[in-house]
């Protein structure tokens, strides 16, 4: 069986420190796949390897039957793999509307155009509004993104991430630092966008993880120790050890 995104024996060391020690990960098309693990396990590093922020030391990353390891980030994005960040990563001085529209440009084939006047292009503006409605930020479209509340900025970030129509999304702690009601809103949004997409998600809130995921992989000290259905992961002995046996009741 071929997988949508597959990591084969991926290794990464910074100097002599091995951060990722031979990760094998298989993600099926259309699933919500969660990546969990204790602090310092290498989750963010793994994201940065997949999305081309860092080069890998050895191994293969295969996306849609194409090797993507060590490609620049923008190339990976153009192949249809988009990501959000742990720290809010938006364009703070641009308006909320502009933020989303920037996310649409490449996939609507504007490239580096110096002749298209965006304000008079109905198609891209309609599409932008559609996404703004989807993330419930239409009311703020003219405000500078940096002035939004934290939860709204996170929603905007997800909006930028999905705007380009990427079919595969990596989400890095989308609910970190949120209140309960904000978390619920974010979870709804993720479920909403997952309909026709493959999603890999790093998350600390186990409620969210078990609520959303089709598959859960557990990363401990740079290795995947378990990758299975939520119910099986919950009962896995090694996972329990790694988490001191007290999660997901």
């Amino acid at each position: 069986m071929s997988y949508h995104l597959e990591l084969k024996n991926v290794k990464k060391n910074f100097g002599s420190t091995n951060i990722i020690r031979g990760v094998n990960l298989k993600i099926k098309k259309g699933e919500i796949h969660s990546l969990i693990g204790p602090n310092g396990a290498g989750k963010s590093t793994l994201y940065n390897l997949i999305s081309g922020v860092y080069n890998i030391s050895s191994g293969n990353i295969i996306f849609n039957n194409k090797n993507i390891e060590n490609l620049p980030s923008y190339e990976i994005y153009r192949l249809g793999l988009s990501r959000s960040f742990q720290i809010t990563n938006i364009f703070p001085k641009l308006s909320v509307f502009e933020n989303i529209r920037c996310g649409l440009l490449w996939n609507l084939d504007y490239k580096y155009s110096i002749t298209a006047i965006l304000d008079s292009d109905k198609k891209i503006n309609d599409k932008t509004n559609e996404i703004l409605n989807k993330i419930s930020l239409a009311g703020f479209s003219k405000e500078a993104a940096g002035l939004l509340s934290y939860a709204d900025q996170r929603a905007l970030e997800i909006g930028i991430t999905i705007a380009g129509g990427a079919e595969t999304i990596l989400l890095d702690e989308p609910t970190a630092g949120m209140s309960k009601s904000e978390t619920e809103r974010a979870t709804r949004l993720i479920r909403n966008i997952s309909e026709d997409r493959t999603i890999l998600i790093v998350e600390h809130d186990m409620g969210v993880v078990f609520d959303l995921s089709d598959t859960i992989s557990v990363l401990v000290y740079g290795e995947i120790i378990c990758s299975d259905k939520p119910i099986n992961v919950k009962n896995n002995k090694r996972v329990k050890e790694a988490y001191l046996g007290n999660f997901g009741n």
Binding site: Y74, F85, F91, G103, L105, N107, Y112, G164
Partner: peptide
Amino acid sequence: DNQQRAEFVGYD
């Protein structure tokens, strides 16, 4: 505003 984000909307 944000170089990294600009890369992750597909731009060099």
